[in-house]
Simulated scan of single mutants.
Amino acid sequence: MYASVLLPTDGSEASNEAVAVGLDVAARFDAAAHAVYVVDERFVAAEYDAAVEGAERDGERALDAVGDLAAERGVAVEKHLRRGVPHREIVDAVADYGADLVVMGTHGRSGLDRLVHLGSTTERVVRAAPVQVLTVPVDSTRDRSRSE
């Protein structure tokens, strides 16, 4: 049913849960898996400033976590670090990587990041993507039990 699954990540709990679901879908349908992290350039002052370098390190860590989870599940995953506006880059990645399904968490960043972004990235992808978007909510009950 699916040949290529796109797994956007920001390293948050929401995206980690969505990645796990997306990897399960990829395994079930023997689909290619593509993990993507987008460095949001809207809030960067210069091309190579400390904020960009920090965001790229965060992105590499998030993508490595996806790679580790994929290896545990026996799924090959290609990792992609992109720059731009997250929802636009994710929608563009659908065509770039031939994805026919996007799997995303229903929320990610919180605090100031959430206030700065007008509307959620997931909501914008759902509205703009030319393919199906599977949204995965964070299970707050399960999250609490993990920390106890």
Rank of each mutant, 00 (worst) to 15 (best):
P8W: 04
G11M: 05
G11K: 03
G11N: 02
E13Q: 14
E13T: 13
A14Q: 12
S15Y: 04
S15M: 12
N16P: 10
A20L: 06
V21D: 02
D24R: 01
D24C: 00
V25C: 04
R28E: 05
F29W: 15
D30T: 13
V36G: 07
Y37Q: 10
V39E: 09
E41Q: 12
A46M: 07
E47G: 12
A50D: 12
A50I: 08
V52Q: 02
V52N: 04
V52A: 01
G54Q: 08
A55S: 13
A55D: 13
E56R: 08
R57T: 08
R57S: 08
D58Y: 12
D58K: 13
D58E: 12
G59C: 03
D64E: 12
A65F: 05
V66T: 00
V66R: 03
G67W: 00
D68Q: 10
D68P: 09
D68F: 04
L69Y: 06
A70E: 05
A71D: 08
R73D: 11
R73T: 07
A76Y: 14
V77I: 11
V77E: 11
V77G: 09
E78Q: 09
K79E: 15
K79V: 07
H80E: 15
G84C: 05
V85N: 04
A93I: 08
V94Q: 07
D96Y: 03
G98D: 10
A99L: 05
D100C: 00
L101K: 01
V103Y: 07
G105A: 15
G111E: 01
G111A: 06
R114A: 09
R114D: 04
L115N: 05
L115W: 13
H117E: 07
H117G: 03
G119D: 09
G119H: 06
S120V: 03
S120F: 05
T121L: 10
R127G: 13
P130K: 04
V133K: 01
T141R: 06
R144Q: 08
R144N: 11
S145N: 03
R146T: 15
R146H: 14
R146A: 15
E148P: 06
